[in-house]
Write a protein that binds this DNA or RNA. Structure first.
Lengths: 331, 331
DNA sequence: TCGATTGCTGAGATCGGTTGCAATAACAGT
DNA sequence: ACTGTTATTGCAACCGATCTCAGCAATCGA
């Protein structure tokens, strides 16, 4: 097919290319009659505007990068999924950027997004390290973060209330009769992970029971190690809170390998609300984060900031999702 | 920061912009002395070339779209992960495109990739439907497909040998002593899914045992339904092959809810080799697909095609990955 | 010593749009 | 009929590179 530029459409429609341009991007600036004619002609030719050329001239594009540490982690996958949708509902095109936890890549993506004239970007950081790169760029460029941020007044953020989530988990477990409740820490060194841990420590203390941190590591094997630790204890807790669903899976799996059954022998509750949890064995009781909402809100926040410069910090409410990995303690 | 274009670098270095351009994209065409000076100056200014402007002028970019139906499915997530890496090892930038199984979106992405001057694209189709859109575009534009394709001589493809995979599974199960082996179908209506099913049917027959298809659906609940069907049978098989890991998870989960234990009561083997499987309860025995290889090869194939126009069809060897969801039949 | 090659750099058109400004047409008011 | 808007459209410069064509100096063969 012969290269389809704005000029060929213009010629075909018998108008100047600027008129074609306006017909597409500023409809009210061209007589409706002319516009419809142009659009019809364009349609017939199968013409679409080049996003590249547009971005170059306008110095602003519709590409919006979503920076995540690991798309293999279902939490980020679900986030990516809802965000792509939220994005193109508003005419944006989401670019998925995977850092694999490499801060250098994060940096690279930031400069790339700048070069692509992205109007803003979304970051779901894996470690506090990213925060540095973030600060360097966030100042000049619009970024919204899916996490809490140190001295978080500079960039908009959206998170869920970690404390409330842990509270929900604790309450659920208490109401089932558990009094000794352990904790296995999360995958990454994010503020969110930290917050959950802190909340557990505080709330445990408040309720009078001694906190039992089975593992405070931050890698994928935290779950496995936590389970090992659990197995070695003389007087193990009767329930375990996992910092997120993935480690809950690992915990249950590791426990299962040693013949410990969930929830018969010990209850386990996760944190995330992944769809996957419903198909785990057993289906995972968990604290659900409204991931879809987070996606939409992140974009809204970014747009809002672009318009009136406001920097908001939204914190969403988590909710308890009871499935089958928790029950009363064995008697 | 003042807009950093090639001209400001040129001015700063005291040369013409075409020289700067060459210094970056055709190093051998400029005196090494000059080049180094330019590069130094550019470095100092923190200058990077605009990929947009480059793509526009060159009519070819380094954006390469990866079109997948659902990033939430760990198979595609792992594929995306290894492909991003493979991609930027070669200087490409992967754009993740999620269709949610909507053919219209597939179409949209194709035209978008065209507009972005992508040198080629990678498609992991969800249904045969995508194939149509594919044919419409693949002719004019380079696309490599992660699946088999009808009359597959037009586009390069990479797949794993489904028949061999099923054979591996069957052999494993047979060697454990199973003779009655059921099958639960896969998630999507891809050729791959079809091939696995066909292979099961054929190989079962060959080995003299009647095939037992527990569910042939193609949605996420195939696993659940398969399990239900299993529970209703008077004489259920002693082992189950799941068309992919995700349905294996669902099967085991559903079975577990009814008190049927894996592998004690029934063995289950998956197909994919997801990392997740290692942390399932129990850890999943499965047929591993070399996903990382698929990613690299897909890109190699595309490049090769771009160069010498060759259209190859690579089929990779799957391998058996024994974990804990299979054992001898209960006696 | 002189024309021919070779190596390096500058000019300027071009990629596909956007946009401020000027020009023309259409419409009102008096 | 004449002038002051207002609605439309054309003109041309510009966004940030790339690339062909020339120009110019240095090197080479005879």
């Amino acid at each position: 097919m012969p290269d389809l530029s704005i000029d060929v459409v213009a010629k075909a429609a018998g108008v100047h290319r600027s008129t074609v341009s306006r017909a597409f991007s500023r409809p009210e600036a061209v007589k409706s009659e002319t516009r419809e004619h142009i659009l019809r002609v364009a349609e017939g030719l199968g013409y679409t505007m080049s996003p590249l050329a547009q971005a170059l001239r306008r110095k602003t594009s519709t590409f919006i990068p979503l920076i995540v540490p690991d798309i293999t982690n279902p939490f980020f996958a679900e986030l990516a999924k809802t965000m792509t949708q939220a994005a193109d509902e508003r005419g944006y095109q989401l670019l998925l950027c995977v850092t694999n936890g490499d801060p250098a890549k994060t940096d690279g993506y930031f400069t790339a997004m700048q070069a692509m004239y992205a109007p803003f970007g979304i970051v779901a950081p894996s470690t506090k390290v990213d925060t540095e790169a973030l600060k360097r760029f966030a100042f000049g460029h619009k970024v919204v973060v899916i996490d809490r941020v140190e001295g978080d007044d500079a960039v908009p953020t959206v998170t869920v209330d970690s404390r409330r989530g842990i509270m929900l988990a604790l309450d659920h477990l208490h109401s089932l009769g558990h009094t000794s409740i352990g904790y296995v820490s999360g995958i990454a060194g994010t503020h969110t992970a930290q917050d959950r841990m802190d909340a557990y420590l505080e709330l445990s203390a408040e309720s009078g029971s001694a906190p039992v941190v089975l593992d405070s590591g931050s890698d994928l094997d935290a779950g496995t190690r936590g389970a090992e630790h659990f197995l070695e204890m003389e007087n193990p807790p009767t329930a375990i809170i996992a910092a997120n669903d993935m480690v809950a899976f690992a915990v249950i799996s590791a426990l299962g390998r040693s013949g410990v059954r969930v929830p018969e022998d010990v209850s386990v509750i996760g944190f995330d609300g992944l769809a996957l949890g419903a198909r785990f064995n057993p289906p995972l009781t968990t604290i659900r984060q409204p991931i879809a909402d987070m996606g939409h809100i992140a974009i809204e926040l970014a747009e809002k900031q672009n318009i009136d410069g406001s920097v908001d910090h939204i914190v969403l409410e988590p909710e308890l999702l009871v499935r089958s990995s928790t029950s009363g303690p064995r008697t």
